[in-house]
């Protein structure tokens, strides 16, 4: 396999993995604080449509990304209000957020279907991307792709190397204890939820501004749920979230290449591969229950009653 074939392959894998990585990075922080937000799909779609519409109206990609992030945050604030302030069931609220986001994004985007847009520009000058071998792989990307790497590294550093990260994990593991020593559990969780919403919104913007530069109803096509599965797959570890996103992207792309190359394997089976791999890894990881419990936030999905 020469690099003329390999380079576009790697680029395709990066494009497939980036939205998953962005959304999963946000959700990782949310879940580490003990909040399970199942609304990623809805937040992504809202981010996608608001990013697209803003870019169309203002012509500014910066504003488009800001709008997508803020829309994701607004959606997650709605969830936070229901689940953290009113103490509604997190699973139900998250599902409702997805349903709401699917519908609202379709409504908002109804007049924007079938319009093209110039994609988010590549960050570095074109000359760098023309460098042999490493050029396209390292320098031919947009801001969001680099952000996805920066964000996952930043989240690792934040969670395991800062005091704020320690507090966040404490809130996620034992909210009563954290509360007892004086930390504002709801505030920490709300902020973590907002971060998750922002990243989901940006993941959506990646879809409508980079991956397939257009708006179409339900264009995320289940990627929000995959991001959610990635967290469990990664047993709540940032490094594994990164690996998982790229593994998933790689299998998704390679199965298409296998079909194109005429491998005599049923297409349905190849389409199944990414999900099969997820299940397989889950099974392997689950054999060691202790290691999961080490990383899984103990209070995930549990409502916090300060009085209790």
């Amino acid at each position: 396999m020469d690099h003329a074939y390999l380079t576009p392959l790697i680029l395709a894998i990066i494009a497939t993995a980036t939205p998953l990585l962005l959304a999963a990075t946000g959700e990782l922080v949310t879940e580490k604080s003990g909040v399970l937000n199942l609304g990623i799909e809805g937040m992504m779609l809202m981010g996608a449509v608001s990013g697209f519409v803003t870019a169309k109206l203002t012509g500014s990609m910066v504003l488009a990304l800001v709008a997508a992030g803020l829309t994701g945050m607004a959606m997650s604030a709605l969830f936070g209000f229901l689940a953290l302030v009113l103490l509604a069931n997190q699973v139900a609220s998250g599902l409702a957020l997805t349903i709401f986001g699917v519908g609202l994004s379709a409504l908002v985007g109804a007049n924007w279907v079938g319009q093209p847009i110039d994609p988010l520009p590549v960050l570095f000058p074109a000359a760098l991307a023309e460098l042999p071998l490493v050029g396209p792989v390292l320098f031919a990307h947009d801001f969001l792709t680099y952000l996805s790497f920066g964000a996952i590294a930043g989240v690792w550093w934040f969670l395991y190397r800062t005091k704020a990260g320690l507090i966040l994990r404490a809130v996620g593991d034992a909210h009563d204890s954290a509360h007892a020593i004086g930390y504002n559990v709801v505030k920490v969780r709300f902020l973590a939820t907002l971060f998750g919403g922002c990243m989901s919104g940006l993941a959506g913007a990646y879809l409508s501004l980079v991956y397939t530069p257009m708006w179409a109803e339900n264009m995320s096509a289940g990627r929000g749920w995959i991001a959610l599965a990635l967290i469990v797959f990664a047993t709540w570890r940032p490094g594994r979230v990164l690996i998982g996103a790229y593994l998933f992207g790689a299998i998704a792309i390679l199965q298409l290449h296998a079909q194109g190359a005429g491998l005599d394997i049923p297409a349905q089976f190849l389409n199944m591969l990414p999900y099969l791999a997820t299940i397989l890894v889950l099974v392997i990881i689950s054999r060691d229950a202790v290691r999961i419990r080490l990383n899984a936030p103990a209070c995930i999905g549990k409502a916090f009653h300060p009085a209790a």
């Binding site: 497939t16 179409a216 990627r223 792309i253 290449h257 389409n271």
Partner: peptide, 27 residues
Amino acid sequence: VKVIWVNTWYDPGKEADAAKALIDQGA
């Protein structure tokens, strides 16, 4: 004619990936 089955009527991302794969394989 090289055929890639994406097993969906509608998934912009996956359709785009399939197009990339086909082009990479000489289409």
